[in-house]
């Protein structure tokens, strides 16, 4: 194998461009910002983003299966509310956790049912359930004063320290690892990929596309529930609007990580890497004292740059691999929605 082909192969691996971007950003900040490696700050920022890691993993699953779930952020917030409320009212920690997971599960079932069985558009259905979940959290916090739980074991879910890492981070890592394994090592995972690549071929191949999609929505809902439990345990408080906008961060992260919104392409660890890149940017800018007003502009530019870079690198890999004029069909790499 020529060195050229080897480079092409490495570059062609999904997630490599994002990994390069991540390393470059991390190196830059560690040189430019003295407090970048402040252990407390690192722990704080990673902890803060654990719920985003968890929902990104679930959301990536849905996107790879060719769907979209905009409700994950709001469902996460609502699950945090129900779970914390349960713990406040004397539910044992396992039960309170179940309440949170159950809330997410229920939304996953409802989303899946309406999208798969009633054949309504996923974007709109999950936009609707986003509103419903966010609204229910407002109603909940409006009627019940959520003052936090006294149950130490509930608070321990996210806040136990294991060798300098928090249990919340371990939960995030475990979620990403398990989902990645399911995606690449199981038949189910292959069915998810096939479903995302094209529903008709998948149907012809004998895959119950509806069931696969249903499963993806339930998984994403339940993981939003898990994220909610972790968040409630860390904050020991819930307020309206909690986790609002997480879905956009998660989608941006997944796409940055090379997950295609058209479905059928990408992986869970790459999506998680996307979150890590966004977190690093956020932390770096904060520690540099960049005005959040500018911050929003920079983040927008970074997302664009990341996606364009990812595309460019893959083209480069293709052209390196095939010395003859590269077969870069525009359509194949092109925007998401039209292919669905």
């Amino acid at each position: 194998m020529s060195s050229r082909a080897r480079v092409a192969r490495v570059l062609g691996i999904d997630g490599v461009p994002i990994l390069i971007a991540f390393v470059a950003v991390a190196v830059y900040f560690s040189l430019a910002v003295p407090s970048f490696f402040d252990a407390d700050a690192l722990r704080f920022y990673l902890n803060e983003e654990v719920p985003v890691f968890i929902i990104t993993a679930g959301l990536a699953f849905v996107i790879i299966a060719g769907g979209i779930d905009l409700s994950v952020g709001a469902v996460l917030g609502l699950s945090a509310g129900t779970s914390l409320l349960a713990s406040m009212n004397g539910f044992s920690t396992p039960l309170a956790t179940l309440v949170g997971l159950g809330t997410g599960f229920a939304f996953g079932v409802i989303n899946g049912f309406i999208i798969v069985k009633l054949r309504l558009n996923d974007f709109i259905v999950t936009l609707g359930s986003l509103n419903v979940a966010a609204g229910l959290l407002v109603v909940l916090t409006d009627h019940v004063q959520i003052v936090g739980t006294q149950d130490g074991s509930y608070l321990a879910i996210a806040n136990t320290s294991v060798l300098g890492v928090t249990s919340a981070m371990l939960i995030a890592v475990a979620t990403v690892a398990v989902l990645q394994l399911v995606l690449v090592k199981t038949i189910l995972g292959r069915k998810v990929m096939a479903t995302g690549l094209g529903q008709t071929p998948a149907l012809i191949a004998g895959i119950d596309v509806g069931r696969v999609k249903y499963f993806a929505y339930i998984l994403s809902g339940t993981l939003a529930g898990l994220g909610g439990v972790v968040l409630a345990s860390r904050l020991n408080s819930v307020q309206p609007g909690l986790a609002g906008g997480y879905e956009l961060a998660a989608i941006a992260a997944a796409v940055l990580g090379g997950v295609s919104l058209a479905g059928g392409r990408g992986g869970i660890w790459q999506a998680a890497l996307g979150v890590l890149l966004l977190v690093t940017l956020k932390q770096g800018f904060r520690l540099m004292g960049v005005d959040p007003l500018v911050f929003s502009i920079i983040t927008g530019l970074c997302i664009l740059a990341g996606v364009i870079l990812d595309r460019g690198v893959r083209r480069l890999a293709l052209s390196l691999a095939a010395p003859a004029p590269a077969v870069t069909d525009n359509r194949e790499l092109a925007p998401a929605m039209e292919a669905k």
């Binding site: 941006a252 295609s260 919104l261 500018v294 929003s296 927008g300 996606v307």
Partner: peptide
């Protein structure tokens, strides 16, 4: 962005959302 650079519409317009919103804020 969407047609010439092949950025998915969701991402391109999401980025524009932060850009235009940030510009007004700034």
């Amino acid at each position: 962005l969407i047609t010439k650079l092949g950025v998915p519409d969701f991402i391109a317009t999401l980025a524009m959302l932060s850009l235009a919103g940030g510009a007004l804020l700034y």
